[in-house]
Design a protein around this nucleic acid. Structure first.
Lengths: 110, 110
DNA sequence: TTATAATATTGCAATATTACGATAAATATT
DNA sequence: AATATTTATCGTAATATTGCAATATTATAA
């Protein structure tokens, strides 16, 4: 088939997968890092920061936005982007829970 | 093209993207959750836990293993799987750093 | 109004992923 | 040895992603 069978999984599982998937590309990781580094809203210069064509960057920004990892606001004919902490927090909380569940583990077989 | 241009990004960026990508599918999220829940090495019954065919599950397990998120060890004619905490830790550390970088932020534009 | 600039969308080619039936490989059981 | 059980791999079809040129859109500037 090729299509992932999201129907069979919980909303939470699909949600986490969706956010993680958005992080699952080096260009989008680079965008997140850049936005975190400049520590501010950034208008316009994200395209110049990446070794990719403008439409490609625009696509990646869209993906990050849809996943709730970045926010964008229009400023004249430019668009300002910054990190949406909620998305990062969701992943952090999720992995913390997962981590907690396994810390007491004393598995010797693996 | 379709191929992601990993060459242009740092090793760290590619590494994080690779791990996140592995989490980027609900079936693999479900596998991680199951392994965390049972809190032990699990032999064999992962296939029964998922609404997917055995070869598909095997493929997902391989993806998680390659990303360093789970470990597997042979036990007779079965294989035992459990979470590899290193993978989870890497993501946690990374997002914590990212989170730290942006907590002082007082952006009002987004 | 007519450029100019910044970003988004469309269309398309190349590649990757997902899913599964069929089959292989390896060990366990009879 | 023959059979059953468990997991992995192969082959393949359906779908998704990635990347970019061309173009559209929107707002500013001249």
């Amino acid at each position: 088939m090729g299509a992932s069978k999201t129907v069979h999984f919980t909303n939470k599982q699909n949600q986490i997968a969706e956010i993680a998937k958005a992080v699952g590309h080096p260009a989008r990781v680079a965008i997140l890092e850049y936005l975190a580094k400049v520590n501010a809203c950034v208008c316009g210069d994200i395209v110049n920061e990446l070794p990719l064509a403008q439409p490609t960057v625009s696509q990646h920004l869209k993906a990050l936005k849809q996943a709730g990892l970045i926010k964008g606001s229009i400023d004249g004919n430019a668009v300002c982007y910054c990190i949406d902490e909620k998305g990062i927090e969701q992943l952090q909380t999720y992995f913390s829970k997962l981590s907690l569940m396994i810390t007491e583990q004393k598995n010797t077989c693996c």
